[in-house]
Amino acid sequence: MRRAALVTCAVLGLAAGGAHAGSYDDALAAASLGDARALASLLDRGIDPDTVDAQGNTLLILAAREGQRGAVDTLLARRVRIDYRNLAGDSALMLAVLRGHDDVARALLKAGAKVNHEGWAPLHYAAFEGREALVDALVAAGAEVNAPAPNQATALALAARNGHIGVVRRLLALPQTELNALTDTGLSADVWAERQGNTDIAALIRAERQRRGLPAPALRLRIE
C-alpha cells in the first residue's frame, strides 16, 4: 500500500511540476525502447531519473527488462535508485536476469545492485530459468545460495524442478549448497525433480548427498 501511494505521488508530482505529461510518457518510451540519446535529453530537461510508471517500474527497471544496455548505462550515470522494486517486487536486476539479458545484468552488478533481499531474489530467477552464466555471476557477487523463495524453494530446488541440469551441477559443486531444504509443501529438491520427471537430476542430487554422507531429509506432510 505504501509503495503504491509513493508511485501515485511520483506520477502526479511529475505531471504537475516542471516536466509535463508528454515528457513523462516520452521518458518511459525512451527507456523501454532503448533510445539513450532521447532519454539523456529528457533527463537534462528535468525529468526525474527515478520516474516510475503506474506499475511502479522506474526508468531503469523498464530499460533493464527490455535489455536496453545504452539506456541502462545512461540511467546508471545519473545515480538512480538501482535497487528500487516495482509493485510486483521486482528490481531492475531481477528482470534483467529473468529475461536473460546478461550484459545488462552484469552492468547492474558492477554498479552495485543488491543480490540478496527477502522474497524472490535474482538467483531464484536465474535458477528457475536455467541461466547458467548468470548463476555463476550472481554467486560470485555474493548471492546467498540457500536463501528461500516465498514458497521456501531454494535455487537448487527451482533448477531441479524445471530440469536445468547445468544449473544443478553448478550449485551441487558449491559446498555451501543445502541438499535437504524443503519447500512449503515438504518437497526436497530431488523429490521435486523426480515428480517432474527429471530423474537424472534427482539421481545427481542423491549421489551428492551420499558423497557428503548426509541422510535423506525426513518426509514432511502438510495437512490441509
Rank of each mutant, 00 (worst) to 15 (best):
L59I: 03
A27D: 11
A71I: 06
A5V: 13
G18D: 06
N57L: 02
V72K: 06
R79V: 02
L59G: 12
G56E: 09
V7N: 05
A31M: 09
A54G: 06
G46C: 10
L60C: 04
G112S: 02
L76F: 07
L39V: 04
I47V: 15
D90F: 07
A38F: 00
L6P: 00
G100M: 06
D25F: 12
R106S: 11
D50A: 06
D44H: 02
P49D: 08
A38S: 15
G100L: 06
A107I: 07
L109N: 05
D50W: 05
T74E: 10
T51C: 09
G18F: 02
I82R: 04
I61W: 00
D83M: 02
A111T: 04
D35E: 14
A107F: 00
T58Q: 02
A10V: 08
S32G: 14
L6M: 14
T51N: 09
R81G: 06
L62V: 00
Q68F: 02
A36K: 05
L87V: 14
Q68D: 07
L75E: 01
R65M: 10
V7C: 10
E66M: 15
V11C: 13
A63G: 10
A113H: 02
R99E: 15
L93W: 11
T51K: 09
L12K: 12
R45K: 07
G56I: 11
P49E: 07
A5Q: 15
N57G: 08
P49K: 04
R65Q: 15
G100H: 13
R37L: 12
R69G: 13
A77Q: 08
G112M: 09
D53Q: 03
H20K: 10
L87G: 14
